[in-house]
Nucleic acid binder design. Sequence first.
DNA 1: TTCTATTCTGAAAATACTTTTCACAATAGA
DNA 2: TCTATTGTGAAAAGTATTTTCAGAATAGAA
Lengths: 145, 145
Amino acid sequence: MDSINFKDLLKERGYKLTPQRQAVLDIIIEHNGEHLSTEEIYALVKEKYPDIGLATVYRTLLLLDDMDLVYKLDFDDGLSRYELNNKNEDHRHHHLICLNCSKVLEVQEDLLDTLEEQILTKNKFKVTDHRVKFYGYCEHCSEKE
Amino acid sequence: MDSINFKDLLKERGYKLTPQRQAVLDIIIEHNGEHLSTEEIYALVKEKYPDIGLATVYRTLLLLDDMDLVYKLDFDDGLSRYELNNKNEDHRHHHLICLNCSKVLEVQEDLLDTLEEQILTKNKFKVTDHRVKFYGYCEHCSEKE
DNA sequence: TTCTATTCTGAAAATACTTTTCACAATAGA
DNA sequence: TCTATTGTGAAAAGTATTTTCAGAATAGAA
């Protein structure tokens, strides 16, 4: 996501491109693959843009989520986390959350297309997105038992 | 879940059976199939047990979730919701959340066993539970477009 | 049954995360 | 450059949840 695209996307929705918005998006792009919390994003943005306020970070994350540039995640730790919506990814990936060490792994699998078709047929519900979380024990924590 | 079983389950963990705990569980059982929020549960329990405090309801729901008697749900409305963990159900059901009217449907499907096997093989991650949410448009809201 | 260590409860205070308010600042199109 | 409009930071407010604490209730022992 370069700034020219971002500016256009904002404009489509009547929003302006500001250094703060760019800075928040930049951090999320730089940390692609991580699951940063709002406070973590705030701290990282502050390194480059010390005057930014926490409220602006919250507002920007809301905006980016609404624009589908990021995905909001919930790993049950009480924090909102975000990851870049990698549009070149064939399918959304799923998260494996270790109940022991809380580590989060990612799986690229997607068997859910079949399921989504069945849901449309049986329930007449048109699925547009899904969120899947698997809980269990990672390799390291499984061995320790 | 009759009170005798509940009492034993509590005892196993060093907890006592109190009228408050029973009352909260009773309400959840009575409303099986619904997705009650904490405040809704509080209001319903209060009808039968007017002196109960909100903190006790929070504490009890935490306990019931920990004991796997209920499932905590998150439909992205800022509220914690709970449903009875129906252990005679073959598989967990999934929720279909309508992005337009916010109605929540349930699907009994479970194609995830195959996926979980693949996850164990490829990622050496032992899945013990999963949460799946599908977002989209219900029959009624699809038609209106 | 009575006693008593322990757990539990209600109310209020405290937390934690998030949103809103408001006055001032910055953006972008004219 | 001008200016309508949107955006921002700081602080306050909001909302859901957890903790504190003194008194009450439970359950096992006596």
